[in-house]
């Protein structure tokens, strides 16, 4: 992934920078006595060692990061920032489903519970499907939290329920015609 020039100039550039100007001195025909030469050799060794260390760091960091990213995608791990990178990867058709929350009053009246539009709160709707798998205590805590976010008093209701509606969209009017609604879970308050 390197620059054309950088790679083609690699060895000479490396020697030039890592070798503390050795190549320049040779080019100028400068006289170098033994003591200076010994010091120069020491500098060269240190610079080569630094370059070698930098190469090892480069390999570990780059291929380590790439390996984690690839593994996360292959195994479909979702442990952010390790992710499967599934962006719109499933096919969309005219058919779809929507999950919604309703609050049930003592007289049986059902009130839709709106979820706030702000991204941080709106995305909590993705937890609705999982509500049925939670412990009763967690179910109640989440139900109360959603009611309060919607500005509804939990005291006014005896339960909340999660409904899943299967729909088909009309391509011309873009209206969703609900085919069936299934109650996934009902949580007593």
């Amino acid at each position: 992934m390197g620059d054309t020039g950088a790679t083609s100039r690699g060895p000479s550039a490396d020697e030039h920078t890592a070798g503390s100007g050795v190549s320049d001195e040779h080019a100028m025909g400068a006289a170098v006595d033994d003591e200076q030469a010994a010091g120069q050799a020491g500098d060269d060794g240190a610079a080569a060692g630094a370059a070698g260390r930098d190469r090892r760091v480069a390999r570990v960091v780059t291929w380590g990061a790439v390996a984690v990213i690839l593994l996360g995608a292959a195994v479909e791990i979702e442990a952010w920032p390790v992710t499967s990178f599934r962006l719109f990867s499933t096919m969309r058709t005219a058919d779809g489903a929507t999950t919604s929350l309703v609050a049930i009053a003592p007289d049986g009246t059902q009130t839709p519970v709106p979820i706030p539009e702000h991204q941080v709160l709106a995305t909590t709707s993705h937890q609705l499907v999982e509500l049925r798998d939670q412990s009763p205590r967690q179910q109640r805590a989440e139900a109360v939290a959603w009611l309060e976010l919607a500005g509804l008093d939990p005291q006014d209701f005896v339960a909340v329920a999660v409904d899943r509606s299967a729909w088909t969209m009309d391509p011309d009017t873009r209206e969703r015609h609900v085919r069936s609604t299934t109650r996934l879970v009902e949580v007593p308050l």
Partner: peptide, 26 residues
């Protein structure tokens, strides 16, 4: 021009390439 200065931008480029490629692969 050193090894230490050379690899990080290329590593960033590699990650960029891998991530975009993965979104297509998925």
């Amino acid at each position: 021009r050193t090894v230490a200065f050379g690899w990080p931008p290329r590593a960033a480029l590699t990650v960029l390439a891998v991530v975009y490629w993965l979104t297509g692969v998925q």
